[in-house]
Structures are given as structure tokens and as C-alpha cells.
Write a protein that binds this DNA or RNA. Structure first.
Lengths: 347, 347
DNA sequence: TTGTACGCGTTATCAG
DNA sequence: CTGATAACGCGTACAA
């Protein structure tokens, strides 16, 4: 921690040339006499010289860094997205600058200015409907968008002003409902997220559409508005079940995400229900732990990591995509939490 | 994405003062006439002016950014650490620059130079014994250490050259073994990590020590060398069990971490074992999902996030701590994966 | 082929 | 109290 990093001038002086020549050698410019090149290169190697990113950024007016804005790395879903984004960016010589949204309180405008004043190459926002509708977040993105391109993985909204990537949950949700129906389920509930509200959008719509198509009962209590954490799932499952008489209760639940499913499964277990015999559960996101729950959790795969990589590519592509949205399909990954091995259930 | 950020000169010109005065106003220097201050402030507000972080960094020779080096954000354990570190750093006006170690292949030396040339305030490394013993990683840290302070959360090693924080697993491991013993377990195994090898250090030593103290059998097959992922846990559990005759098998396993425990539990379940009646399991790290496994997983809490916050504070403290190591205690969080509710098992 | 000069946006110093 | 100037380290025109 004592050494001072050699500057281009140190190298130039020691090699007996000008700074410009050092730059030429560094960049492999052809206009350098071989002898000179070798001489300079030797000094460069000797010092392990590397040009200052900071000075370069100041001159060039842009840093090869992408700002990444997300709710929290504590949610393994976002952590995996960031990881994939970092891989993709790194591969192209870019790196990531992190910003987690404050859980409570408003976004610090100083942070926004800081982010902008870093001359980032772009910003990548990811969040759920809960985040994308925060006024302070919208303002932040709107301000940032004036200075750099933005891409986002979030629920689609009008007038977002940047490219927004999301999944076509419609087909996956309907597929999930059909899956449950085929296994003999009649009373199917949705748990967590904003359910009926416009906010959670497609999920609720597709869910209800499919219920109607299959002529399955629509019970108000089957659509719980709730948060997206495991604790929320645990709590909301409890509320839904205790609010209904035994014969009114669902035999299957479609959860807002895998965390909610985790919580719901715990609750059902505590209530003495057998999984999947007494209650089928479907999650969403297909997170790593779906393979390890008991029983393994059937989940909707959103191809999240591919999404993230694609977002980085989009951000770095010169041809800025002006389309407001990019949609990816999602698929149902069937495991055992709905009882496929049990076959048809008794109706 | 069209606007150009106003510079200090834009502000100065418009306010009819010099750049120096703008700086004074920004920094709240007392040596400014109130009238001037107000005039300048008005222009600053009108433009939403904020000084360029890049230019400031170049001048000051240091950016308020901390480089964070970790195996992968896909491991929720590290993700949680990074999240906590970010919270702590952000609170002090610092931000995080991310670097995930390549899973395969060597560390790109260009990345190291890049990291150094960013004039970071410090570097924060976190990793397991598998990482800390990589030659390329050691070289990287050694090089980085010449230019900035480093703190690490990793297994202790000789001559690391920087502050290394880790947990005193000794007491926790022994406590875990005693916990199992009190519940009537005689045949206790360790699963994953480097077990007997010096590398995994304290865990294995403490484990064996306690076995001897309690006069419990030491079976070679009870100490599986293995990886740290859920898939590793699944595989290693299988190998250990099939390698032994039924009466030789353990009735309890102490896992390298919670992911390994997750995999092992799945394997045991597939083998038809009941948890915890036929097999007790203990994990390590006390991750968020421990509450949601079936049964909830008893785990050793390393206070990982507090560790991370403390690491950031250490890094930012002026008084560089020259001690080679900082040890924290760890505690056993008892849930139900060892059958506390069952009481004593039949011997 | 090589060197000189300037701009990038700030802050600190020093002079007024 | 305020302004001019230098320095931070680099790349890039332009001149030689």
C-alpha cells in the first residue's frame, strides 16, 4: 500500500520518449519504429504500467461502467440477475456499479447525481411492480435517462421512456392453470403479488381468463393481495385458509414467486396438510432452490439470467432500440409439488 | 439522453463568478458573501448542477469506491454479504465496484490493472478456502495490496498480508456435536468442505476433538471431502451412505454449509429416510431458507452480514488495523432438523 | 516516426 | 471575499 502507480510521464521519461509515444505503444498503433516500441514496452512491463481509468474516463467523457439499480441483492432472484449481467458486461470489458434501492425512505437525490456524474455507459434497472411504481424511482430513472441509455427488466408500464424487458406470463400462467386442472384440481387460488389489481397485470388477467375458460370457480378469497417475500407467503397463506371454511378452501395455489411459494408451503405443512396430496403449489422464477424443496417445486421459468445478459447487450449495442418493450416467453418447469406422480386426483 | 451535464464553468459564467467561487458555494465555505452565495446557488439549483465525480477523482487521487471481489453472486451467502457491505458503504457516501472471480480459467490480469487504476479506496475480498488458495487469487490480492488497503472475510492463512476476518467455528462446531449427542446421536458425520484436510481448518479439528471428548466413534467415511454447492451435498451424501453398510451409517450429519445441507436433505429423503427421525442434519451460515426447509434447518450462524459491515468500516477507518485477523464468534441456531421436538432418541 | 499542446472538470493554492 | 492558475493523467489533434 506504499507504491504510487506510475504515470504515463514516468514511463515516457524513463524510456526517453514523449507521453504520446507511450500511448501509441499501449494502443498498438502501427506508426512506431520497432526499436522504439520495444524500448518503451520494456519500461511498461518493468513497471506493470496501466493507464489510469479515471484520467481516461475524464478525457473520453465516458467510463466503461454500467450502473445497476435493483431492489436488493438479498433476494436471490436479483442476485442471480446481477451475476449474469456482470458476466456479460465483464466479457465486453465493462464493469458494474451497484445501487440498491432503499427499502424505506426516499431515494437520495445525491446518489442520483453521483450516478450521473460518473459518466456511466448506461443504466440497468430491475424490479417488480412494487418498485417500478414508486414515484421516487420513476423520477430517478427519468432524470438518469436524460444522460444515458436505460434498459429495464420490470413489469411493462406506459411512458417509461426506455426499453423495458419482461415476460409473457400469459401463456405460462394459463399453462400452469391447465396443468393443475389436468391433475384434477378445481379450486385454484393465486397467492401474493397484486393479484386482481391492474398493477400485477398479466398474471391476474391470464389467471382469471383461464379459470373462466375451464369453467372453474372464481372465489374472491382465492386472489390474495400480498408481498413477495417468503414471510409474506407464509402469512397470506394463513389468512386465506383461515378465512374460508374447509370445503371452500383451494386444493392448489399459484404463487407470485418462489419465495412466496416457500412460505406458503411451510404454512400448509404447519396446518397439517400433506404436499402435494392435500395441496398443490406452483412458484414463479424457477430459482435454484426449487429442486431442493420437499416436494420439489414446480415453477414458471422466466429465463431471468438470459434476460439480464440480453439487457446488457442491448445497452451496449450502438443501435439504441427504441421499441418500448421486449417480450420473452416463459415456460412451466414441472417438478413434484403438484403431484404429477400421483396421477389424477379424486374429484 | 441528449442533455450534456453542466460543468462548473457553465455555472460560473451564468452566475458571473469564477469557478472557484462555485466550488466554495458547493462546499459551504464560509468565505463567500451572502449575496454572492445566493446568486450562485440559484444557478446551481436551476441546472441541477453536481460536480463531476470523475474529474474530482482525478484531482483528489482517490474515488469513494470500494472494489469487492467475490466468487459469485449466485451463491446467496455472498449476495447477502455484498448487500450488507453496500448498505454500509452507501451510508458513508461510498459505492461498490463489483468483481466476480472467474469460475474457470485464470483471473484476467487486465482486470486487476483496471481495478488498480480506478484509484479505489480499498478492496474487500470474500471467499472460501477453495478460493483463498487459488494461486492467481493470491497473486491478484498481493498486487492490489500494494496500492490500497484490503480486508477479507475468508479462512485464515499465513502471510496473507491483509486483515482477514473469520469465525471462531471451534465452539460452534463443538456445540453442534454436543447438541446432537444430547439428542442421543452416536454416529455423527461431516459432509462437504475439505473435512480432514488442513485447508478447511478449524471445522474438522473441532469436530474430531469433540468426537473424542464425547468418546464417539470416528469413522473415516464420516468425513467426506466435497464441494460447497447443493449438488455437491446431494452427491456426497449419496456416496457416503452407499459406501457404508446400513448399521455403519451415521444418524446425523454436520454439513459444510446450508447449501450442502439442502442437497443432503434431498438425498436422504429420496433414500426414504425420514427427517429428522432417521437422520439429523445441521447446516452452516444460517441462510434465509433455513426457516423454510422441511424440517426447518438447524444451522450455525456466522453473523455474516455484521461481518461484512464491520469489514467496510475497517476498510474506511483511518487507523489501518495491522492485526492479521479479526475473529467473531458463531452460534448454533436450533430449529427442527435434529428433532428437538422428538426428545431423546432410542439408543 | 515522434513530439508539442490542449482539453476533459475539479479543487487547492496563492495573489489580490 | 474573489479570481487566476496549476495540477491530476490521459488521448488526440496537429506540427515537425
Amino acid at each position: 500500500m506504499e507504491e504510487r502507480k506510475a504515470t504515463i510521464y514516468d514511463i515516457a521519461r524513463e524510456a526517453g520518449v514523449s507521453a504520446a509515444t507511450v500511448t501509441r505503444v499501449m494502443n498498438g498503433s502501427p506508426n512506431v519504429r520497432p526499436a522504439t516500441r520495444e524500448k518503451v514496452q520494456r519500461v511498461i512491463d518493468a513497471h506493470g504500467y496501466a493507464p489510469s481509468t479515471v484520467a481516461r474516463d475524464l478525457g473520453s467523457g465516458s467510463s466503461k461502467t454500467i450502473g445497476i439499480i435493483l431492489p436488493s441483492l438479498r433476494n436471490p432472484y436479483y442476485a442471480a440477475l446481477v451475476s449474469a449481467a456482470d458476466d456479460e458486461a465483464r466479457q465486453r470489458g465493462y464493469s458494474l456499479w451497484l445501487y440498491q434501492l432503499p427499502r424505506e425512505g426516499e431515494i437520495d437525490s445525491a446518489v442520483v447525481e453521483n450516478l450521473i456524474s460518473r459518466r456511466l455507459s448506461g443504466a440497468f434497472f430491475m424490479g417488480g411492480f412494487y418498485d417500478v411504481d414508486r414515484p421516487d424511482l420513476r423520477e430517478m430513472l427519468s432524470r438518469i435517462g436524460k444522460y444515458m441509455p436505460i434498459v429495464a427488466i420490470c413489469p411493462p408500464r406506459e411512458n417509461l421512456g426506455f426499453v423495458c424487458m419482461f415476460n409473457d406470463l400469459n401463456s405460462a400462467i394459463r399453462q400452469a392453470v391447465r396443468h393443475l386442472h389436468l391433475l384434477g384440481h378445481q379450486r385454484i387460488a393465486m397467492l401474493g403479488g397484486a393479484a386482481r389489481l391492474l398493477d400485477s397485470g398479466q398474471r391476474a388477467v391470464a389467471f382469471v381468463d383461464e379459470l373462466r375458460y375451464l369453467r372453474l370457480p372464481e372465489v374472491p378469497e382465492f386472489e390474495r393481495v400480498g408481498g413477495g417475500s417468503a414471510a409474506d407467503g407464509e402469512q397470506d397463506a394463513y389468512r386465506m385458509m383461515t378465512q374460508l371454511r374447509p370445503e371452500e378452501r383451494p386444493t392448489a395455489v399459484l404463487c407470485y414467486n418462489d419465495l412466496v411459494a416457500l412460505g406458503a408451503m411451510k404454512q400448509f405443512r404447519q396446518m397439517g396438510l400433506r404436499l402435494p396430496e392435500d395441496m398443490a403449489v406452483i412458484g414463479c422464477d424457477n430459482q435454484f432452490f426449487c429442486d431442493y424443496t420437499a416436494p420439489p417445486l414446480t415453477s414458471i421459468d422466466m429465463q431471468a439470467e438470459e434476460h439480464a445478459r440480453s439487457a446488457i447487450r442491448e445497452l451496449l449495442s450502438t443501435t439504441v432500440n427504441h421499441s418500448a418493450a421486449i417480450v420473452r416467453s416463459s415456460t412451466l418447469v414441472v417438478r413434484e409439488s403438484c403431484g404429477v406422480k400421483l396421477g389424477w386426483r379424486k374429484l
